[in-house]
């Protein structure tokens, strides 16, 4: 029995990756929940918008790299993120102007907007593939690790190593900053409050003189920022591939619903709930258990609850359990 090594192994293979993944999902789910709360539909084009934001960031990253501009130990992509956000903002605002606004003026039902977003999804899907192709792209540069496994072992003299990648560290720090900024905006600024008011009671907000156009514009801007950051962090952590981003739709929706659609805090908690369950259920626990259990009880199998290919199943199971026992989600969203 060796609890210290067990904890290190657990951190290395479960906690650190899940925290990073959870932060990425939380940012994505925040975007979904904002659109659901304020524009009142679930945006099926979310994953592809995320891909587009990442794509623009990658293009700027390459351009900076070709000019010899880098951030040293940090990934150059961080420098390119503002440009990615700007590009995505232009895209979503143009889409809103050309596509969505028409339906809002017709007072279209939310389901109509959902179907419209499917059309937008197809268009974005084609757009990202036309621009950068469907293949995997790796755009992380700079120092790979904050601590690598060997250094950790030498430092602590433990058998197990703990590796924290730069991208994981950046993910967590960026996510915390972005979320803090978002909450400050929503709860402390006049525009932020007007967005909450619009989401709460549209008629009363309009009668109070809140401009729907402005609320919608600002919502899309925030969503563009959140989603680009989420996409770039995910891409740095893993890699960029349009199809993977499209598939992130399911865990992101699951996170938003588990937390309670329309609730920003719920989206964050939901993101981590989904991420931790996904990693924990698809992780082979053999190593951790070997350290943690007395010799006699050590498992002989891999102790992997589900193969990693079933990670979507995990988000889905969590979702079902929450919906059955708490249909409004963990944080009383707007579901019922």
């Amino acid at each position: 029995m060796d609890l210290l090594n067990a904890i290190v192994a657990l951190s290395n293979f479960v906690i650190v990756p899940a925290v990073a993944y959870g932060a990425q999902l939380a940012l994505g789910a925040l975007g979904v929940t904002l659109i659901y709360g304020i524009l009142r539909f679930s945006n099926f084009a979310h994953g592809d918008t995320m891909a587009f934001g990442t794509l623009v960031t990658i293009l700027f990253t390459w351009w900076f790299q070709s000019m010899g501009i880098t951030l040293g130990v940090l990934p150059t992509a961080l420098l390119a993120i503002p440009f990615g956000i700007a590009g995505t903002a232009l895209l979503v605002l143009a889409t809103d102007r050309v596509v969505y606004r028409f339906y809002r003026r017709k007072k279209a039902k939310p389901v109509m907007l959902v179907i419209v977003s499917i059309g937008v999804m197809f268009v974005y899907n084609g757009l990202t593939r036309v621009i950068l192709g469907p293949d995997d792209r790796n755009f992380a540069d700079g120092e790979r690790f904050i601590i690598n496994a060997r250094d950790f072992r030498e430092m602590t003299g433990l058998e197990e190593g703990l590796a924290i990648r730069t991208t994981q560290g950046i993910t967590v720090i960026t996510a915390v900053l972005v979320v803090a900024l978002l909450f400050w905006f929503l709860n402390r600024t006049r525009t932020g409050k007007s967005m909450r008011a619009y989401s709460d009671n549209e008629d009363l907000a309009l009668l109070s003189g809140i401009s729907p156009e402005k609320v919608e514009r600002v919502t899309w801007l925030i969503v563009a920022a959140l989603i680009t950051v989420a996409g770039v962090l995910y891409g740095l952590d893993k890699s960029y591939k349009p199809f993977t981003y499209f598939q992130l739709l399911l865990p992101i929706f699951a996170a938003a619903i588990v937390g309670g659609l329309g609730s920003p805090i719920g989206a964050i908690v939901g993101g981590f709930v989904i991420a931790f369950s996904e990693v924990a259920i698809t992780y082979a626990w053999k190593k951790v258990l070997e350290y943690a259990m007395p010799q006699a009880l050590e498992p002989d199998g891999l102790v992997q609850l589900l193969s990693t290919d079933y990670k979507f199943a995990v988000s889905f199971m969590i979702l079902l359990v929450v919906l059955i026992f708490r249909p409004t989600g963990l944080f009383r969203g707007k579901s019922v």
Binding site: G37, R40, K106, L204
Partner: peptide, 27 residues
């Protein structure tokens, strides 16, 4: 009469949020 308001009786809360929707024309 307005085909854009035809939601075919859908009440799926995972895609559409009916709460707080208003009647006033803000545009």
């Amino acid at each position: 009469g307005n085909p854009y308001q035809d939601d075919r009786g859908n009440r799926d809360r995972s895609i559409a949020n009916p709460l707080g929707v208003g009647e006033v024309d803000g545009y």
